[in-house]
Simulated scan of single mutants.
Amino acid sequence: MPPKLIGPYRVMETLGSGGVGTVYRALDRRTNDPVALKLLSAGPALDTRAARRLAREYETLADLAHPNVVRVFDVGVFQGYPYLVMELIEGLTLRNYLDLRGAELLSPSGSFSSPRARALPDDSESWGDNEEDSDDEGGALPFNLAAFSEEEPSEVGFEAGPASVRALADAADEPDTGDPEDFDAGYEVPDPKVQLVERRIQEARTEDLNRPERMGRLKDAMLQVCEALAYIHGHGLVHRDLKPSNIMVDEDRQVRLMDFGLAKFLADDAGLTADGRMVGTFRYMSPEQILGEPLDARADLYSLGVILYELMTGRPPFDAKTPGSLWQQVLEVEPAPILGINLKGDPQLARVAHKLLRKEPDDRFQTAEEVYEALAE
């Protein structure tokens, strides 16, 4: 059972759980507004890296306001459990949204008829390439909150602010350290037979990918993502972890860019962490991100190109059995032509995707505004 109260927030129900925490629908008792509250595990199970990312996400987004960027409201520690409070977004990840057919989009009540995705992506996705758009709701909790349900709601142990989250992480662990070899541990080796079946299924799906109604939704969503990127880039931020599971679409078909736990200000060295560890999700990393070079907005645009390529072909531009092999392809190999995989794909969208995937940042679109204009042609 979840806790009844977390600071000023009344927990209503569980929205989803992941490797490091659980997301709840909650009510802010001060305003009576519904919110999404992500509660991390505590004690020996505390993921200190996730806790620091939680504080960073709050500090990154606290002063931002854009219709296509998720809003955050609060961060702190409740009885040893770090939490983040943000805008409640009930909808689907971008990939799941585009997988729906027209009849499935709306229920009689006007909301998505398909199961809703969790309001916050699982933090663990950012540290491996096996990126999935899971819509799991509820399920077994990764840590035991049963004791809280047996006690009367209490404010004891409640502390707000990003400093409290960092202090908890510092007390539980040394500052983040890591080894590039750690990335191999989370990389799933594809089965060749499974890959062959998937490719054959993909060939049969190209007609489904090109449904006019789906392509209209794809272009509209990409335009909204461009607006979100233009806004954050204009505020000196690089997202660094752009992928379909970090893009949500609500029942009004409004896109929200999510999960800014890896975001960096352009004034900082946005390539590596302080200890030299690479950050991001393997499949969506730009060449300069792989090389650990300082990043600018064009790294996010490369990731946008990977997303567009995937959504037009049903497969990633690069695929390999190991991270090293994947990175070698990203650095040295040109992706297969989209229109060679999807013969009836949209030529203009294909051109945009391929330009976004150029190896050299100078050869790509230079701003999200330029991408928007190209998509709108």
Score class of each variant (00 low, 15 high):
Ser286Arg: 08
Arg256Asp: 02
Arg256Gln: 03
Leu242Tyr: 02
Gly305Ile: 13
Tyr309Phe: 15
Tyr309Ser: 11
Asp259Cys: 05
Phe265Gly: 13
His354Ser: 09
Pro335His: 14
Arg358Met: 12
Leu266Gly: 04
Gln329His: 08
Leu291Ile: 00
Val352Pro: 11
Ala336Gln: 14
Met248Phe: 12
Arg253Met: 13
Glu332Lys: 14
Leu304Asn: 07
Pro317Tyr: 03
Ile341Ala: 08
Gly340Lys: 15
Val255Trp: 03
Gly271Arg: 10
Ile338Leu: 15
Leu357Met: 05
Phe282Asp: 14
Pro317Lys: 02
Phe282Glu: 15
Ala267Gly: 14
Ile290Pro: 04
Leu242Glu: 07
Leu295Cys: 13
Arg298Met: 11
Asn246Pro: 04
Leu339Gln: 10
Ile341Tyr: 07
Leu357Ala: 04
Trp327Ser: 10
Gln329Ser: 13
Gln329Ile: 02
Pro335Cys: 05
Leu301Pro: 11
Ser303Trp: 08
Leu331Val: 05
Ala274Asp: 13
Ile290Gly: 03
Ile290Gln: 08
Gly292Thr: 11
Met248Cys: 00
Arg351Asp: 15
Pro337Ala: 07
Ala267Pro: 00
Gly276Tyr: 10
Asp319Gly: 00
Arg240Glu: 08
Phe282Gly: 07
Met285Tyr: 06
Lys359Phe: 11
Gly292Ser: 10
Gly340Gln: 15
Ile307Arg: 01
Asp362Phe: 09
Lys264Ala: 14
Glu310Leu: 04
Thr281Tyr: 09
Arg253Leu: 13
Met312Glu: 09
Tyr302Asn: 07
Pro244Gly: 05
Asp259Lys: 03
Met312Tyr: 08
Ala350Trp: 14
Ala350Thr: 10
Asp252Leu: 12
Met278Ile: 14
Thr322Val: 01
Gln254Asn: 10
Leu262Ala: 11
Asp363Trp: 13
Leu331Gln: 12
Leu311Phe: 10
Asp363Pro: 00
Leu311Asp: 01
Ile341Val: 15
Pro317Thr: 02
Gln289Thr: 05
Leu301Glu: 10
Met258Gly: 01
Ser286Phe: 04
Gln328His: 13
Phe260Lys: 03
Ala267Phe: 13
Leu311His: 12
Asp259Tyr: 11
Met312Val: 01
Glu360Cys: 00
Thr322Cys: 00
Pro287Ile: 07
Gln329Gly: 13
Ser303Gln: 06
Asp363Thr: 03
Gln348Glu: 14
Val352Met: 12
Glu334Met: 06
Asp241Cys: 02
His354Trp: 03
Tyr284Ile: 05
Arg298Thr: 15
Asp241His: 04
Asp319Cys: 00
Leu326Ala: 06
Arg315His: 03
Leu331Trp: 03
Ser245Met: 09
Arg358Cys: 10
Gly280Cys: 06
Ser303Asp: 07
Leu291Glu: 15
Glu293Gly: 00
Leu356Met: 12
Leu272Trp: 02
